[in-house]
Nucleic acid binder design. Structure first.
Lengths: 214, 214
DNA sequence: TTTAATTTGATAAAAATATATCGATATTTT
DNA sequence: AAAATATCGATATATTTTTATCAAATTAAA
């Protein structure tokens, strides 16, 4: 269907387009132009058109723009928001609990079906319909339930180990919130949230701004 | 001192270098080569040398590499980890509490000094030495205490409004965890954590992997 | 002391990403 | 019905970021 493959940058913008388009729909807009999208989202309009062309074959009409509903359909389809995939989470501390009880994931087609932890006080409880199991049972669970996505919210000391256990059990995609760099084989998808990175970028920008003002 | 300015990509890698170098130091290594760093961190060695050259004037010695201590000193200095800056957080729900009680920020030179919320049950409490105030008092607090960094962990419906209140009060850098795009003037630093983006990239990679294997 | 090995740092090339230009086209206005 | 206008989509250009190449330099080994 589409020739060119979406770049990482394009993919990371798609959820933003989707949010924007859903808001348009809510406001009753039937059509939207790439120029308008670009203005509102602080992007370049050529970029918007290219991004949309890559994941959708819907053609925009001069003077009118694109049909909102069709774009929503195509982005959701492309991102797989329609068919949910299951995930497990390891480390049911503060952050783990927060993610477990976050309902927004549903929208993104993600369903956290179980948590794992070593703390006996937490094991056996249930958060948002997900049972918390002892860490030992991870391998069995993953194999039995064919889960491909693993989320890591543990202290850094154990994160690498957990990643390896996950991979051995059959996990193919790891989303890590542990403050350390994980090493995984090439055929494993890995996305690491790094607060230190984000903060570095932010505070560097801040110091530029403060310097400019004085 | 340094001619070329660090790119956003370079800056975001610096905390990772630092973590790695601190580990080297812990292991008693005095020197480290860019080749070794690159191997261990799964980067390109040229990139490592360039990154380091931009933020440090320390010269690497052929056959030995760079002096670990000096690199640590320069990265920490560049990132401002020595002089901590204060921040406030708005939205003391699950995520807000998690961030408030996260001790790791200290290392990054960030100190969350107060929280703000509208929920009367939370207002008046204290988390990790930070008092929680009614949202109304934000402007006063920011002005009196000369705080420049604001963290947003509220539902999306109110996030844009809060950003604007922050900016009006004097906040210059906003770190947002709200699942929506914020619009701010150019002279405000903004870093938005977007879980939907991350997840999109991850699950797209996953589907590539799964497709390749079948 | 000479040789071999390894790393740096400068420069060049490549890849990825973002932006600019412009003719063609559909809609609205005149 | 014709003209004006806004938008698309194709192509070209620019910028940013990453990776490759290689001579010069330094250390350790022979």
């Amino acid at each position: 269907m589409e020739n060119e493959k979406a770049s990482r940058a394009t993919i990371s913008r798609l959820p933003r387009y989707l949010r924007y388009l859903l808001e348009c729909k809510r406001q009753g807009k039937l059509n939207i132009s790439s120029t308008t999208i670009a203005n509102d989202m602080q992007l370049n309009s050529v970029q918007v058109r290219k991004d949309l062309a890559i994941i959708s074959s819907v053609a925009g009409k001069p003077k009118l723009g694109f049909e909102v509903d069709l774009l929503i359909r195509d982005i959701e389809g492309y991102l797989g928001y329609n068919n949910t995939s299951e995930a497990i989470i390891v480390g049911v501390g503060k952050l783990g609990k927060t993610l477990l009880s976050y309902d927004g994931f549903k929208k993104y087609g993600l369903h956290i079906v179980a948590g794992f932890d070593v703390n006996p006080e937490i094991v056996g409880t249930e958060i948002n319909n997900a049972k918390i199991f002892p860490f030992d049972e991870l391998t069995d669970f993953v194999k039995k339930n064919n889960v491909y996505i693993g989320i890591i919210t543990t202290p850094k000391a154990v994160a690498q180990n957990i990643a390896e256990t996950m991979i051995a059990a059959g996990i193919k995609a790891i989303w890590s919130f542990a403050p350390c760099h994980l090493k995984v084989p090439e055929n494993i998808a890995l996305k690491q949230e790094d607060m230190a990175s984000s903060l570095a970028v932010l505070s560097k920008r801040l110091s530029e701004i403060l310097n400019n003002e004085n």
